[in-house]
Each structure stands twice: as structure tokens, then as C-alpha cells.
């Protein structure tokens, strides 16, 4: 929530003058996250867990939709098309196919949930690809990525806890969550060794 809130805040027209909108954020990743949250939270309408659960689902969808709108429509001029080029079809298609093959239950909601779990684990790839192409990440982008990466990494601790105390585990969520966290690891290394020391992330050319 902090990461997504940061992004909306930094892209919000009230908060920053249009020219200050942070560059270096991948619009493609933001679209993938929006698709992820919509596909996963369709049960908002059918399955009430708690106020917190519903509130966070609404926040995730609303904030990522706002970010996509601000980046790709309102501040389209500042969006860096040239460096945000990873083909998302090559991420969406395999996730969709895998969701049809490996899932807990062959029902529309379950398939969409599974697709969303697989998609989230690779949704950051366009962003990491863009950082490698631009060769650097703005500090605020680094904070955003760190928050986004640690969100799923912390879930791994929760899954371990629930395995030992509730004897509950969801293998699909765990495998995808581990893959997702591993994808962030090289970024975590850069974040901790550089950004926290006040430096910017500049990747070797």
C-alpha cells in the first residue's frame, strides 16, 4: 500500500508540477499490476473476508488504476516510451496458459485468480528491464520497488507461519511468491548497498 500510494502521490497532478512527474516508471508494469489486481479481486463481490481485506483490495485496484491513468493518459508526454519496451504479451500468454493447466479448480474465478498469481510474479519484469535499459532508477522509484518487493517477501514469512500454526499452505501462491521475490533480489541488493547510502542506483552500462 505504501509503495502504490507513493506512486500515486508522486504522479498526482496536485502534488507535483507536470514536469516533475517521476520518469523511469514502467507503464507496462503498472498495467500488469492493474490486470493482476482486477483478475484476483473479482471475489470482492462474492466473498467477504474482513473490512481490512475488502478495503485493501479496493485500494489496490483504485490506486493502480489511478497510476495507469495518470501515467499513460494525463502525463502521457512524460512517459518514456523508448525505454519501456518489454513485450508484455510474452508475459501474459504463458501465465494464462499455465493458469489453465496448473490450478486448484477449473472454474472461471479460480482460473483468473491463478492467472493473477502467476502474472504478479513477472509483472515487475518490464520495470526491471526498463531500469537496466535506462541504467538507473530515481530514488523514489527505488523506494517504490523496495516496498513492492518486500510486500510479497513478507508474505513468505506469513506462509511459513500459517504452515506451522494453521497447517495451511497454498503451493501455487508460495511458488509464485518465491519466484517473484527472487526476481527482486538483485534489485534489493542494489537498493540496500546503494540507495540506503544516499546514492542513486546506476547500473553498469
Amino acid at each position: 500500500a505504501a509503495g502504490i500510494g507513493l506512486l500515486v502521490g508522486m504522479n498526482c497532478p496536485k502534488a507535483v508540477k507536470p514536469r516533475d512527474v517521476i520518469t523511469g516508471i514502467s507503464g507496462r508494469s503498472q498495467i500488469l499490476f492493474l490486470v493482476t489486481y482486477v483478475a484476483r479481486y473479482l471475489d470482492l463481490l462474492t466473498n467477504f473476508v474482513s473490512v481490512y481485506n475488502t478495503a485493501m483490495k479496493v485500494f489496490f485496484i483504485a490506486a493502480s488504476a489511478a497510476t495507469v491513468y495518470l501515467m499513460l493518459f494525463k502525463f502521457k508526454a512524460t512517459y518514456d516510451h523508448n525505454h519501456d519496451t518489454l513485450r508484455v504479451e510474452f508475459l501474459i500468454a504463458p501465465c494464462a496458459l499455465l493458469a489453465l493447466v496448473v490450478n486448484h479448480d477449473f472454474t472461471p474465478l479460480e482460473i483468473l485468480w491463478t492467472f493473477s498469481i502467476y502474472l504478479e510474479s513477472v509483472a515487475i519484469l518490464p520495470q526491471l528491464f526498463m531500469v537496466s535499459k535506462t541504467g538507473e532508477a530515481e530514488t523514489i522509484t527505488s523506494h517504490y520497488l523496495f516496498a513492492l518487493g518486500s510486500y510479497r517477501a513478507l508474505y513468505i514469512l506469513n506462509w511459513i507461519y500459517r504452515y506451522y500454526f494453521d497447517n495451511f499452505f497454498d503451493l501455487i501462491a508460495i511458488v509464485a511468491g518465491v519466484v517473484q521475490t527472487v526476481l527482486y533480489c538483485d534489485f534489493f541488493y542494489l537498493y540496500i548497498t546503494k540507495v540506503l547510502k544516499g546514492k542513486k542506483i546506476v547500473l553498469p552500462a
Binding site: D43, T46, N47, V49, S50, N53, M56, K57, F60, H104, D105, T107, L109, E110, W113, Y155, N158, F168, D170, A173
Partner: peptide, 10 residues
């Protein structure tokens, strides 16, 4: 297995 009803995670 935690199908749709049992999902309580984000």
C-alpha cells in the same frame, strides 16, 4: 486446497 471461498489473502 484453498479454492475461491477459502481465499483470505491479498
Amino acid at each position: 486446497s484453498p479454492t475461491t471461498e477459502g481465499k483470505d489473502e491479498l
